[in-house]
Nucleic acid binder design. Sequence first.
DNA 1: CTTATTGCAAAGTGTTTGCATCTTA
DNA 2: TAAGATGCAAACACTTTGCAATAAG
Lengths: 159, 159
Amino acid sequence: MTPAEIQDTVSALFCAFLEENKQRKTPERLAILKCIYNQTEHFNVESLHQQLKELPGNISRATVYNTIELLLDCRLIIKHQFGKSLAQYEKSYQSKQHDHLICEDCNKVFEFCDPRIHQIQRTTEELTNIKVSHHSLIFYGHCQSWQKFEKCEHKDQDL
Amino acid sequence: MTPAEIQDTVSALFCAFLEENKQRKTPERLAILKCIYNQTEHFNVESLHQQLKELPGNISRATVYNTIELLLDCRLIIKHQFGKSLAQYEKSYQSKQHDHLICEDCNKVFEFCDPRIHQIQRTTEELTNIKVSHHSLIFYGHCQSWQKFEKCEHKDQDL
DNA sequence: CTTATTGCAAAGTGTTTGCATCTTA
DNA sequence: TAAGATGCAAACACTTTGCAATAAG
């Protein structure tokens, strides 16, 4: 699927969701979705709002928060709370489930995937009799204890 | 170990830590540690401060934050960020490692323990070449989809 | 034309900081 | 008695809310 095809698909999905839920299809909401699906990394409300200010239309922070809520509802984005107060988001259409490893030396966020988390989930569901809908697994580590610093040099980036 | 013995032990550990790090042994710090080790559940800064206000001495929120930082450093407490902005803490001396399942219907927090998380950790360390120091695993679920509501009735508590 | 949505600014919430005062070592 | 810790209040950072103006259906 090309980036353009993905943009079209998520727009269509969002419009369908809005109709179903009797919410209005505003240019602001579609612009925000488009901007989000142009991101390649995690993003936060502030960085998104900065980018939206470049566009014509003057989209306010309140609208960004409002739209993010809708996009979370229809599962087109995922929210992460990586320990700091600042919430991080990422687009989720067609991206496979993954978890995160955060290096506390350089603040870099790595993604990984391990099927055994689902086994733990199933066991926990059986044990507690509570159906699990989603999870958050974050490892916190230190790159400097095992390797040369240049391998992990993005000091104080993102997050 | 009786509760009183635990109190004595953690006080001694904290004092040793303070001496080692050339920090002062103030009555406020010891009172905060004692109050924390009287908690049976997760707590937050606000609830802790409320309880401390009952005591003589008038301990300020700033001192609570300061002391919590020290207690985190010497690993006598653990911090959790359960998705909301409000940070939760729990005492950690002699408590075995565990993870959390949060029911989104009733906000109740369950604890569980699964050794397979360490296998995932080891694999991830090998894969990324980053040494993991700690982790956070949270399952989010819904009790009402599988069982009667009365089994999980503490609506809107804690968190 | 009706009502949801918007932009703005103000209010909230949890945490951090600056500073004068007090207290530990 | 000097460096560090305290209490207070103000500052902060991120998020939510109230409201008049606007625009979607």
